[in-house]
Simulated assay, not measured.
Amino acid sequence: MASPAPAPTGTPPTAPAPPPMAAPAQPRPPLTTPPPPPPREAMVQRTAGSVAYICGGVAEDEQVALQSQARKYNMSLLFTQGARGEYLSDVDVKLMRGGKEVASFIADGPRCLLKAPSGTYNVRATYQGRTKTATVSTGGKNAQMRW
Rank of each mutant, 00 (worst) to 15 (best):
R84K: 13
A116M: 08
V123S: 04
F105K: 14
K94S: 08
P38K: 11
K72F: 13
A15I: 06
L114M: 15
E41T: 10
Y73S: 02
P110Y: 07
T120A: 14
D108H: 08
G139K: 08
P18L: 07
A23K: 14
M21C: 02
P29T: 14
A22P: 10
S104R: 15
P24L: 13
Q69K: 12
A23C: 00
A59K: 15
P39F: 01
M21I: 11
M145T: 00
E86Y: 10
E41N: 06
E60M: 03
A2D: 06
S50N: 14
Q144L: 06
E62Q: 15
R71V: 02
C112R: 12
W147Y: 13
F105L: 10
M96I: 05
T9S: 13
Q26F: 01
G57A: 04
S68F: 03
P30R: 09
S76K: 14
G56D: 05
K94L: 00
Y53W: 10
I54C: 04
K94H: 06
A2C: 01
A52Y: 05
A48E: 10
P29F: 04
T32L: 05
E41H: 08
Q63C: 01
Q63S: 04
Q128A: 05
I106W: 01
T135C: 02
S137Q: 14
Q144W: 00
L114S: 04
D61C: 00
E41F: 01
C112G: 12
S50F: 00
V93G: 13
A15K: 15
P24G: 09
L66D: 10
Q69P: 00
T133L: 05
L78H: 13
Y87H: 07
P8V: 05
G49M: 05
P18E: 11
I106Y: 01
K141L: 07
K100D: 06
A52P: 15
V136E: 05
I106C: 01
A5T: 09
P37R: 11
Q128H: 05
E86D: 13
M43R: 12
G98Y: 03
G57W: 09
K141S: 09
N142K: 09
P13E: 09
N74S: 09
N74R: 13
E41R: 15
R97V: 00
S89E: 06
A52G: 09
T120Q: 15
Y127P: 00
P110E: 06
G82C: 03
N122E: 13
M96R: 09
L66Y: 07
P13I: 02
G57V: 01
A23M: 11
R46Q: 11
P39W: 02
Q144A: 06
L31I: 09
P35L: 03
L31V: 10
L78E: 12
T9L: 11
R46Y: 00
A125M: 11
I54W: 02
L66W: 07
G98W: 05
E41K: 15
S68H: 12
Q63T: 06
V44H: 07
V58P: 10
